[in-house]
Design a binder for these strands. Structure first.
Ligand code: FES
Ligand code: FES
Lengths: 145, 145
DNA sequence: ACAATAAAAGATATTTATATCTTTTATTGT
DNA sequence: ACAATAAAAGATATAAATATCTTTTATTGT
């Protein structure tokens, strides 16, 4: 596994995809999302249900229903998705697994980890969910393969 | 889980502990290591067996036996331990889980991830297993609690 | 009202990571 | 040779992450 759990990777890819596909106010269904971000459909459904309950994404049932993002959601920092799915541990926990990460009783790598973690956090807090819509449209960046 | 697997966290903590405890040429047993880095003994044994097979740490059986590190091992970069336990994925894989991480078909976060990953890699490649012995002796850094 | 649609929810299955226990092998000192 | 020691190896066990399948609920258009 990488920096995030697989679950979280799916969540971020899905959220980016929904952002791009529903910029015009339409909705996109779970099947279409799953196919386009290359994720297991039913598993992704669970993930998106959870994000929907938390208000990070929006959804409507029934015909013409699906997932979408309102203006507020599009403006959210990506870190909100990470926190919702994986929790904030990646931003805060000791890189060597000590129960407490503190500059009082630091592990040998505390100083270095703090730096890497802060960079990661700053990066994810300054990226918004909607900011790649255009690049995705242009094919400059991709969400599968 | 954090940036590394739990397995890998145990491995790094253990390796640091062995380095400190055997700087005088002695050996340290699995039980003592486990207690001092707060890890499950038998599980850690498996991990250290693997590191021993790979030549990253040294061990001898029998009375006065245990784990230790030769001069070469003390000088190893910490990245070798990470690579041995978790594989190099953390240094190379796409942060969003795309099968290939490439600047040709990049994910939206490719640029940012590349930076974070490279920093992490540089950091772990420039840290040696033995370099915290003194800080550990002085209690400036710790491996448990 | 009704039928069709699509997400939500519930239940279950599979795989991987983590952990424990037992037996074997190598080494040492007597 | 022998008994004691400690890691290595083997066999299971448990927990968590990942994945699939089925049933229910909300919404829409007719
Ligand atoms: S104590 Fe380990 S990263 Fe802070
Ligand atoms: S393609 Fe995603 S990090 Fe490089």
């Amino acid at each position: 596994m990488g920096i995030f759990s697989k679950t979280c990777e799916y969540a971020v890819r899905a959220v980016f995809f929904i952002a791009q596909r529903t910029a015009d106010g339409s909705r996109v269904g779970i099947k279409e999302i799953a196919v386009n971000i290359d994720s297991p459909e039913h598993f992704l459904a669970k993930i998106l249900q959870d994000l929907s309950r938390r208000g990070i994404i929006q959804s409507v049932k029934g015909p013409n229903g699906g997932f979408y993002l309102d203006a507020q959601s599009l403006a959210r920092p990506l870190s909100d998705v990470i926190e919702a799915v994986d929790g904030g541990g990646i931003f805060r926990d000791c890189g060597l697994g000590l129960k407490e990460c503190s500059s009082k009783n630091p592990c040998p790598l505390h100083h270095d980890f703090l730096d890497v973690r802060n960079r990661l956090q700053n990066m994810l807090e300054s990226i918004t969910i909607g900011q790649f819509n255009e690049d995705l449209n242009l094919g400059i960046v991709v969400l599968k393969k």
